[in-house]
């Protein structure tokens, strides 16, 4: 099948992901795409648009409505030599599959003493900000990152989404691939014929600065970049580190950054309590203790269920809340 060459203009994250799936299906006949409504409909976000038509229903599979079944059978297919890429329709619907992911997928390689591999990629549109009803806006990355045996990544922009998905599918470990759904329609330039600039688990310094390091991933990278832009007007130079990978975490890049700036603020949508920020703050403190001018601060969601959409703006970290934390960190 021919890969469409329409990448002379910026493309959306949806298109970038679609192209990653397309190339992965094209390159390896063992790659499968499976999930609810991923076939003819092309997925509710159209990430799998056209794949069913081009690769057929043997490769792009509309499954029964059962997440435990989707992940459980993906494990079986992987054991038989396939490379399933499953789509969970929304973050809040991964929980029926949580058992399969945590008790089976994550542990099987170790239990078999390394004799079997589980190259399963679980794509999940995650996090909030799109005005949806409940269970459509959850940030559950910490649950997965807390589980040894799973790799967890969350791109923030179209190019990363593309390359990271291809790398995740190529990985011999199970990867939970979190797609920031509110950024699905952001556009950027992408050359899918090139090569990825970074390894799947490397962080990127998305903006350089010398006064403080903002640490984010997925949907919050954009908010942090905007905060850095706004702070620059006040003469503050904020560095932004886009983590990209949540397990493993590229602590070397983080350490280098914070040792230079002396301050760090971690930003995510998930509740602060026992979120990724807790681990990040602890590790940064351990690695950079003598360079720190202030405690590592965290900005995130509250310890409450994700609220109804008309008040989600109060729940989600925004420019003001990030800058508020920056001010507090700078005041030390």
């Amino acid at each position: 099948m021919a890969v469409e060459p329409e990448f002379d203009k910026p493309v959306t994250m949806v298109k970038a992901l679609n192209e990653a799936l397309r190339r992965s299906l094209d390159e390896n006949p063992k790659t499968l795409v499976m999930g609810e409504d991923v076939g003819r409909l092309g997925g509710v976000f159209r990430v799998t648009d056209g794949l069913h038509k081009d690769f057929g229903e043997e490769r792009v599979i509309d499954t029964p409505l059962a997440e435990s079944g989707i992940v459980g059978t993906a494990i079986g297919l992987a054991l038989r030599g396939y490379r399933p890429v499953v789509e969970i329709q929304f973050d809040g619907f991964v929980y029926p599959a949580f058992d399969q992911i945590v008790t089976q997928l994550a542990k099987m390689h170790a239990r078999a003493l390394g004799h079997i591999k589980l190259p399963v990629t679980i794509r999940i549109p995650f996090a909030g900000g799109i005005g949806a009803v409940e269970h459509h806006s959850e940030s559950h990355e910490a649950y997965f990152a807390h589980t040894a045996g799973l790799k967890v990544v969350a791109p923030s922009n179209p190019a990363d989404a593309h390359w990271m998905l291809r790398q995740a599918i190529a990985s011999d470990d199970p990867v939970v691939f979190l797609e920031p759904k509110r950024r699905y329609w952001d556009k950027a330039v992408l050359d899918p014929t090139g090569a990825p600039a970074l390894g799947l688990h490397q962080a990127r310094v998305a903006r350089s600065g010398s006064d403080l390091t903002l640490v984010a991933y997925g949907p919050m990278v954009k908010v942090c970049l905007e905060a850095a832009e706004a702070a620059a007007e006040d003469g503050l130079k904020l560095e932004v580190v886009d983590l990209r990978s949540l397990s493993p975490i590229d602590f070397d890049t983080l350490e280098q950054s914070v040792k230079r700036t002396g301050r760090a603020v971690v930003v995510h949508e998930a509740p602060v309590f026992l979120g990724m920020g807790a681990e990040l703050a602890a590790r940064i403190t351990e690695r950079c203790f003598y360079s720190l001018e202030a405690p590592v601060l965290r900005v995130g969601g509250y310890f409450a269920p994700y609220p109804p959409s008309r008040v989600e703006d109060a729940f989600l970290p925004d420019l003001d809340r990030v800058l508020d934390a920056v001010d507090r960190a700078m005041a030390f």
Binding site: Y302, F303, A304, P305, P307, P308, R310, V311, A314, F315
Partner: peptide, 16 residues
């Protein structure tokens, strides 16, 4: 529209 502080209401029956 609900008051944003309602986010914190009824999270627990016994408070937290």
């Amino acid at each position: 529209d609900p008051d944003p502080s309602s986010i914190f209401e009824n999270v627990y029956a016994e408070g937290h």
